[in-house]
Computed example of a mutant assay.
Amino acid sequence: MSTTPDVSSRRVRAGSPAGRIAASLFAAVLLLSVVAQVSLAGPETVWEPLLARLAADGVDRAATGALFASPGVVFDPSIMAKKVDSMVKNRFEPVTVTRRSLEKSNYRRFLDPWTISKAGRYMAENRALFVSAERAYGVPAEVVAAILLVETKLGSYLGDREAFGVLASMALCSDFELVRPRLKNLKNSPDRTAFAAQAAKDKGDWAYAELKALLAYAAAKKISPLAIPGSIYGAIGICQFMPSNALKFGVDADNDGSVDLFAEADAIHSVANYLRGHGWREGQSEEERRAAIYSYNHSNLYVMAVLAVADKLVAQRPAS
């Protein structure tokens, strides 16, 4: 028996209080229905489209099936919903970023004197690594340190999720209907809905590629992918690289035979290598410098925060 209320039989007028209540009730029941279907299905059912896609790409199905059967790997469509909602808002409600925006944002906590002093001590403790990275890639040590501070508080916070489950959940959400009930910024707009559907498809394909890169990264390190913590969107390590960037720009700076983004040496050199790979050059313009940092995180506010932290670190640099 269907549990969905027969809203149409009530003949409520669209836009009226009763109509809005009925519409909200219908949306709530639809969301609960989707959640129930996901929760009651076994892992082999929930993840079947993803398992089949990976198998078609030559990834061992038995091995991935064992990973998806792990109790800690749970499908969470709210991750993609949060990302798509943010993309919709940025697209249709753009905000001009100013210095005042930085001072009012959460990034402001990285600019207080105590935090800057802590970053300065971190640089002093790892001076040889920062100096060698700057010489090798031409990226100022203060910029690298600023990124590590903003990304993971200098390695003290590495994320509280398994990167595997995050990326798998996002990859599965290329199916827009898994995301639609959770979105808050559509506002009954066909343009917003069309944009959101395409965004879910694009980010789902992106997450699928990152999931495969995570499997490759874990294989190279000879560890289980489930042992790798990540951010809300699957970034890993002290430097918060997406797995594909770990493969492209990761540096084995300590020469131990593998890239370990959870080790200071590899993380520091990898950040510098990434920025150089995205256009950082000596004598470049301010616009080019900002573009290189923007590639790390597509947020103008992020770029402003990193550069502001770097400037403060330069200002407290001991006189030579």
Rank of each mutant, 00 (worst) to 15 (best):
K82W: 11
T98C: 07
P43H: 06
A168E: 02
A141P: 03
E142S: 10
V314I: 13
A292N: 08
P49C: 05
S24I: 14
V12L: 15
V259W: 01
K201G: 03
Q284M: 15
E44A: 10
S299P: 12
S78R: 10
S156H: 04
I223N: 00
G42Q: 12
L32S: 04
R290T: 02
A200S: 13
A119C: 12
A263F: 09
F176P: 02
D60T: 08
R11A: 12
P113S: 05
D205M: 09
D6G: 09
P71Y: 03
K104N: 13
A220D: 11
M242T: 02
L51M: 14
A272K: 01
V166T: 13
V251N: 01
K201I: 06
I293L: 14
N126W: 07
L148K: 04
E48W: 06
E44W: 07
I268D: 01
C239K: 00
A52S: 13
K221C: 08
A291Y: 08
G19H: 05
I232N: 07
I268P: 00
K118S: 04
V74R: 13
R10I: 11
D175Q: 10
L111A: 04
A207I: 07
A308E: 13
N90R: 11
D205V: 08
V29F: 09
A69V: 11
N185M: 08
R13K: 13
A56F: 05
G165C: 08
I228Y: 01
S132G: 06
R100I: 11
A267N: 03
S169T: 09
K83L: 15
A315N: 06
S244M: 11
K222E: 09
A141K: 10
E151H: 05
L31I: 04
Y137D: 03
E142T: 14
K222D: 07
F262S: 04
A14Q: 06
L31D: 01
Y208H: 12
S70M: 09
D266V: 08
I236A: 00
P77S: 00
F262H: 08
A310R: 00
E134Y: 08
D266P: 10
S132L: 08
P225G: 03
S70Q: 10
L172C: 06
V34R: 05
R290K: 15
A235K: 01
V88K: 00
P318W: 02
R180M: 11
H278E: 11
P43M: 01
D256R: 05
F92S: 06
Q198R: 13
W114V: 15
V35T: 13
A207M: 07
V251Q: 03
L301S: 06
P49H: 03
A145G: 10
I293K: 01
